[in-house]
Design a protein around this nucleic acid. Structure first.
Lengths: 200, 200
DNA sequence: TCAATTGACATACGCGGCGTATGCCATTAT
DNA sequence: ATAATGGCATACGCCGCGTATGTCAATTGA
């Protein structure tokens, strides 16, 4: 029988490592995740890990990249469906809050991410969420929907606001109610960006 | 000569540990800070640390408590000086952004804090910043300055927004300019909370 | 077809950091 | 003055990380 081409085997190994690490990081957090443990769980050893990713941080970066890509896809999906650009933007923000509620995303991207890799806005090519948001803000500005303002600065603040909104929701006694209130508050504050002619 | 009363010596030891840990955590981060190293730097050993704080996390909590108290004092100072309640509130938010720019606060409170202790909104008695902000929002609502909305939900989002604003500023090529833009954006979004009669 | 070479991955080793168990000495209590 | 408390140091073992080294399959070239 013909063995699988080598490249496929390698890709599979990398995928197994990323997958196992993602599960471990999401479950017990970066610091508590033992490389020996989760590589063994994937039928491998730390040898493979160091070979492909250099160190624990490198693997973490790879996991982060994977999750980030998935988030981008979902965000684009949301804004694509909206009737207006502004509505799409608001929906994206709300969707971001909802995603940040998922334990894996919250733990890996939002809690451990900054501690392990530092300032999230500096992650190489992985701060796509902020970039996507900035672009949308720029377009909204061009068409006169919102006030002239630095889109990148705004995007960062919205990013932070949604993150902490999700913290709030996740630990509320009544998450559903907390979510309602948070989305309401978020929309209010986003409304502050609208130009006077657009404000309702 | 009469030896200092024992209680004083103990308080001094605790203070030395907190101070040394704070410096180490602020400089190299929680994970990289070696307990052996910074206790030795304070003329002590890990024995004292475990005796007083139980473990590394316990000491971290103490450091966080100290920093938090200082932040509260500074925030109150700011809002006390403002001519109107609304102005005081806005000033507080801006001051929070500025504090979050200080490396020690950014590293310990904002980066490592969530990773080590989890969701910041759940820190026992240490989420005072959010509580202070919530109270102010409630008062603003009572006097009709801002729209009726859940103050705690809003406070969390503002907290997150200011934090990420400071990330943005800290790494900008021109921090001063980035700060200007961020404050401008922040004020805009806060403006979304104003009731129609108050909006300008 | 058969070396020679590359590279994917495992194994083996040492180091440092953490937590605990234990011991010592000064202060306080009786 | 002796007993008892407790603040803090010392000593030990474990575990996790990173590196150096080894092995074997897959590719390459003549």
């Amino acid at each position: 029988m013909a063995h699988r081409p080598r490249a496929e085997m390698i890709a599979e190994t990398r995928a197994k490592l990323v997958s196992a690490a993602r599960a471990a990081f999401g479950k017990v957090g970066y610091a508590e995740a033992s490389m020996d443990d989760f590589t063994a769980g994937a039928g491998l050893t730390r040898g493979a890990l160091y070979h492909h990713f250099g160190d624990k941080k490198g693997l973490f970066r790879a996991v982060l990249g994977e999750i980030n890509s998935e988030m981008i896809v979902r965000l684009n999906e949301v804004s694509r469906k909206a009737p207006t650009r502004w509505q799409g933007f608001v929906d994206e923000c709300v969707a971001y809050v909802e995603m940040a509620l998922e334990p894996e995303i919250q733990r890996i991207v939002l809690c451990d991410g900054p501690a392990v890799l530092g300032d999230p806005t500096q992650w190489p090519g992985q701060d796509d969420c902020i970039r996507v948001m900035s672009r949308n803000l720029q377009k909204l500005m061009d068409e006169g929907t919102i006030i002239e303002i630095d889109p990148v600065a705004v995007a960062h603040q919205i990013n932070g606001a949604t993150l902490y909104a999700s913290f709030f929701i996740a630990n509320a006694a009544d998450p559903r109610e907390a979510s309602r209130k948070s989305v309401e508050a978020l929309k209010l504050m986003l409304g502050g960006l609208l130009s006077k002619s657009e404000a309702h």
